[in-house]
């Protein structure tokens, strides 16, 4: 890694950061859990989409934190990609929700059980 790392552009050292990497990771874990809980428990499809959004943002926090503390910009770039993809995914997700609403006059996740065996 040594030779390659020197060529990369790196952020300034972060030894003076008031909180450590763990604080970010815990925050990300909490946000992820909140998002997961929302996805699993919300009855409304919009709520589920919001939960997904939270989970993705928890990932972004992780990526940014690792990038910051690892001294590597790759993580930030990844986070940017994630945000872009999240936007696109939201567009598709909301469009699907609207289509489902038009077809079934409901977006209650409990009643969307066509996969039932």
């Amino acid at each position: 890694m040594g030779g390659v790392g020197e060529e990369r552009r790196s952020l300034p050292p972060t030894s003076n950061d008031p909180v450590g990497l763990n604080a970010y990771l815990i925050l990300a874990a909490l946000v992820f859990s909140v998002g997961l809980a929302g996805v699993l428990t919300r009855r409304n499809a919009i709520g589920i989409l919001l939960g997904i959004e939270l989970m993705l943002n928890a990932v972004n926090i992780n990526l940014a934190a690792f990038s910051r503390f690892g001294g590597d910009l790759t993580g930030v770039v990844f986070a940017l990609f994630t945000i872009a993809i999240t936007v696109a995914e939201m567009g598709v997700g909301l469009a699907l929700v609207i289509a489902i609403f038009r077809a079934r006059r409901t977006v209650e996740a409990d009643r969307l059980d066509l996969l039932k065996g």
């Binding site: 699993l40 996740a109 409990d110 969307l112 059980d113 996969l115 039932k116 065996g117």
Partner: peptide
């Protein structure tokens, strides 16, 4: 075993999670 196939995506997600 048929009982666990409810057709609700969230139930499957529970399983995955």
């Amino acid at each position: 075993l048929r009982g666990i196939q409810s057709g609700r995506a969230q139930d499957y997600l529970y399983g995955v999670a």
